[in-house]
Simulated assay, not measured.
Amino acid sequence: MATAFAREGMKVMLADVETGALDKAVAALRATGADVQGVVCDVADPDSVQGAAQASFLAFGNIHVLCNNAGVAGGGGIDPISLDDWRWVIDVNLMGVVHGLRSFLPHIRGHGEGGHIINTASMAGMNAGLGLSPYSATKFAVVSMSEGLAAQLRPLGIGVSVLCPSYVRTRIGESGRNRPEQYGPSRQFAPDSPAAAIIAEIVRRLEAGLDPASVADRVVSAIHDDRFYVFTHPGMRAEVEERFSAILAAMDAVSA
């Protein structure tokens, strides 16, 4: 997304919890002539996000586009249920969005020039195919938050989009590398367990997933067209039809 925004002529502030990756991304974009800066930020920490916001305002003045994009993958399932996994995923995937809105939305409303907010959810926020999962739970929450936010911000000239990609070639499958000690170690599943098989399949699908650049192009298009839902893969309708049909059928049963 940063690359796509820079190509549009925007000034870009990158935020990342991983200093080395941040520095590499900033350098790569600057090499293209982009006006870009970076700030280290842990989205699970509200003070850290507020600091990133202040750094952005000082660097570029008025901010018009906010992307709440940070996310981690955490285990799920019914046995065992790890509270540390749930807390980590919720703090990043859900509260990270809350912290981003809390730090940037008053500024965007205040300058009165309009703007756009992109919240990254997932197809896991449209269809609970992963079963009992902190990841799916947070992504459903981000979709709901975004829908409510869009209705409230539309009269103010601020657009909202919720990005719901399927598998994309990112490193989210390796997000445990940045798991803070306070959440304890990541769980290790037996190699022959069902959970290990599910994780292996997810990793395979991520590696064969969509190029992030094509997702970014869809995001830029959604901002230009003020489009709320941003989907990325053909055939995604089939992933939600069964769930939506069941909901409608249950509603029809009440009214019958």
Rank of each mutant, 00 (worst) to 15 (best):
A195S: 14
G100L: 04
P155H: 00
E207R: 10
S175Y: 03
H116I: 12
L153R: 07
A197H: 12
N93F: 08
Y167L: 09
E207P: 01
I199C: 04
A151Q: 03
L105Q: 10
T138I: 00
R179K: 10
E113F: 00
T120P: 02
L206I: 14
L206V: 11
F189W: 14
N93A: 13
V142F: 00
L156D: 12
G159W: 00
V97W: 02
M123A: 08
V168W: 08
A128Y: 09
Q188M: 06
S146D: 05
T170I: 06
M145D: 03
V162T: 11
I198W: 15
H99P: 02
E181P: 10
R204Y: 05
V160N: 03
S133N: 03
S186L: 14
R154M: 02
T170N: 02
C164V: 09
A190N: 14
V142H: 00
A197P: 14
G110C: 13
L94W: 07
Y167A: 11
A124G: 15
L105H: 09
L94D: 04
G157W: 02
D91G: 11
A200I: 02
G112L: 01
R179N: 09
R109N: 14
V160T: 03
S144W: 13
S166D: 09
P155W: 02
G157E: 03
V92Y: 06
L101I: 03
M145E: 05
N178V: 14
E207I: 05
S186A: 15
D192E: 14
G148F: 06
N119Q: 08
I158D: 04
Y135A: 07
